[in-house]
Amino acid sequence: MTLNPVEAAKRAAAYAAVDAHVKLSHRYIGIGSGSTVPYVVERILAQGDEANKERWFIPTSFQSKQLIVGNGLRLGDIDTFPEIDVAIDGADEVDNALNLIKGGGACHLQEKVIAQAAKELIIVADYRKRSSVLGTNWTQGIPVEVAPVAASQVLASLKRLGSTDAHLRMAKAKAGPVVTDNGNLCIDAPFSTAYLRDPAQLNSQIKQLVGVVEVGIFPGMAKAAYFGNQDGTVSIQHEDGSFKENITVEI
């Protein structure tokens, strides 16, 4: 199948990440969310029925649950399997220290739960998601999942913290706000890159606000990130700060 350059980049990143990190010995695998993840599942399926029949796959969202079930893989849950061998997920932006912004799909609470449970969190993305400082490419704002009763109060607090344009995310296909998989609301809180030079501190400040359920900043959680490039190669960023560029992937 011929893909456009962006989709080909996503596929290359997903394939490379699965090849390197989803071992035949792994039994509990977290499946993330986003447009790159279908290629992750595609590559896992290519490992064969013999490998996958002994595995449990734990989703981060309704989307990933449907991917697991729709492809005939065994669906698990975090209550049953609180320790996961590896989780592969997408990201909205990745900085030079492997800090992440996630939550463009409003499922960052479950994504963070799975990430915390995984021995390794591996990120797959295309070249557009890579930046030196968070907030450079992803300018829509930090996704903040909030209890509905506290939405107005949290909005006011975020504005005092420095996100003067913080706003409730509204649905596009219906009237009203976006409702998360957990029945909460989602606030998008844009911060300048000056605030995001210390993403762990900003994550902590937002998380402490009463009514905040989870924050779409993932500081220091990823082990590696795989970026698909326009030329079909992959760049790999490791938690120790090292990079490998222009890796060829067998498709």
Rank of each mutant, 00 (worst) to 15 (best):
G241S: 06
V178R: 03
S33R: 04
F62W: 13
E239Y: 12
Y127A: 15
G162T: 09
L196C: 00
A189H: 05
L161M: 10
G32T: 01
G105K: 11
G70M: 05
I29M: 02
E111Q: 12
E7K: 15
I88G: 06
V6K: 13
P38H: 10
H21L: 08
M221T: 10
Y39W: 15
G70T: 03
S242V: 09
F191V: 02
T136H: 13
Y39P: 00
E245G: 05
L185C: 01
K102C: 02
F62I: 15
Y15C: 11
P219W: 00
A115I: 01
G241F: 07
L161R: 12
A117C: 01
L121F: 10
A17M: 04
D95C: 02
T180V: 03
M221F: 07
N96V: 12
R169I: 01
E239Q: 14
D79A: 14
E214L: 08
I247S: 12
E145N: 09
A125I: 01
A125H: 04
L45Q: 14
L98D: 00
M170V: 06
L100K: 08
V146S: 11
N52I: 01
V18E: 03
N203M: 11
N246S: 14
I114C: 04
H238W: 15
E83W: 00
G228T: 06
G211K: 08
E50R: 14
G104H: 01
A118I: 03
A91L: 07
I247W: 08
I206E: 05
T139L: 13
S131C: 13
E145M: 05
F218E: 10
A194C: 07
A13N: 06
S64M: 04
D85A: 08
A194Y: 11
K174T: 14
D240M: 11
V41A: 03
I29Y: 01
V37G: 00
Q140A: 15
I236P: 06
W138V: 06
E239G: 01
Q230N: 11
V146E: 09
A8M: 14
K10V: 04
Y226R: 05
V213Q: 13
R74V: 07
Y15S: 08
A46N: 12
R55W: 00
N137G: 09
S35Y: 02
L196Y: 10
I78N: 09
L98K: 03
V249I: 15
R43F: 02
W56N: 12
E7I: 00
I247C: 14
I123E: 07
E120A: 14
I101W: 02
V124H: 07
Q201S: 14
V215R: 07
G30C: 09
P5A: 11
A8T: 07
A147D: 08
A87D: 02
Q66S: 12
E7A: 11
E245C: 09
L75V: 01
G48N: 12
G72D: 04
V133T: 13
N184Q: 05
H238L: 15
A12G: 13
